[in-house]
Write a protein that binds this DNA or RNA. Structure first.
Lengths: 208, 208
DNA sequence: GGTGTTGAAGCACGTTCGTGCTAAAAACTA
DNA sequence: TAGTTTTTAGCACGAACGTGCTTCAACACC
């Protein structure tokens, strides 16, 4: 009946425009007019696919969560495939944790967008549900990683959660610094800190 | 000659209003009109003390940096006064690192404001200088703390910087999680993660 | 070929923003 | 009391925002 347009592809294009705007100009600049311009559409067209500005933002938040979670899941599979304590496993772990950091252009955009939405969710209630999903999803993946790296700690749920939260906090802090102070927190510095933290996970799994 | 008003005190009151608005509604809501309302003044009055919106925001950013740095310096003095390896020193260190976290109302407001400005500085060039000052100041304090805790590492500048950046990243990540996911990252969880990290600093200062 | 649904575009309204500018109010001096 | 200067208050303008609503073109089906 109607003009044939792949609606899902269009929505994806619009979301990509949202990502680019957030990464370069910040979330508050991701207005319908700016997004429409960036996507090469009119405001009315964007609103044809997203009923409101809020719906567009929530959908975009969900999209970036899915992208990041997908990458992490794939990397986690590599970790699981490698034999324990091997060099391959170590590299797979480094690769997984590197997914958190803005090490290339694509990762940097995702990291910017992810951070922006999570911080905005503190204020905007519409984003709260996705923010919690984001935290739950990533925490689960990091928890599984910890269980692979030090299975002994899986006995004590308390310890497992603490170790996982510590790794997660460190990764988020590293990502933040890499985004906000790129001159100080270079890729090498990220790598150094990351390896130092992994070392501390191996050598000091528990203690008084 | 004129009406006697303590200009510095007035500016401080306005800045406090800015802090409250940022903490409760976010930085983008800290407009001149909102700030004037919150401070119980007219827009023209606020603009009498701050020539523009940018000037108000930059001044507020500097104010929160000074507050946080002041607290950290005071806590660092306590660490320096305590005898090495003592329980008093351990508690002083915990107290210092606790200054990063939103453990009470005042700390939470400062943490919100601090985070908001640092993230905004990625986009707004007017805030860039203060953001760098913020990073330099806090990194210097954390570096001094590391030198106190493990003087041996002070030999290798590279290692010192890595350890300091790791601690800083972990603290920023913890602060972020405490602000964004307060149900998950409770005060107890913060304390657990913090002590686990301190343990890892002591037991694994260096290695292959 | 006509018809109706859908994609695309745009207008209009009310709100909020920063800011230049004006003017009243207040308080100290002469 | 009259004058001077700081402080306070407010108006007006252009720009940007979200959104309800209308209009037009394009295409698949009867």
């Amino acid at each position: 009946m109607p003009k044939i347009v792949d609606a899902e592809a269009r929505r994806h294009e619009v979301v990509q425009a949202v990502f680019r705007i957030i990464a370069s100009d910040g979330l508050e600049r991701a207005s319908l007019r700016e997004v429409a311009d960036e996507a090469g559409l009119a405001v009315g067209s964007v609103r044809h696919y997203f009923a409101s500005s809020d719906e567009l933002l929530v959908f975009s938040f969900g999209a970036v969560i899915d992208r990041i979670a997908g990458r992490l899941e794939a990397s986690l599979a590599s970790v699981e495939d490698a034999s324990p304590e091997s060099v391959e496993q170590h590299n797979a772990v480094l690769n997984l944790l590197g997914q958190f950091l803005p090490l290339d252009e694509e990762l940097a955009v995702d990291a910017c967008v992810w951070m922006a939405f999570r911080h905005a969710a503190r204020i905007k209630p519409v984003l709260a549900a996705e923010a919690e999903r984001s935290h739950r999803t990533v925490a689960a993946i990091v928890g599984r990683l910890i269980m692979i790296l030090s299975p002994g700690e899986a006995d004590d749920q308390q310890t497992l959660v603490t170790v996982a939260e510590r790794l997660l906090a460190t990764m988020d802090g590293l990502c933040m610094h890499a985004l906000l102070q790129p001159e100080w927190m270079t890729a090498e510095m990220c790598s150094d800190v990351l390896m130092a933290h992994l070392r501390s996970l191996r050598t000091a799994p528990a203690g008084p």
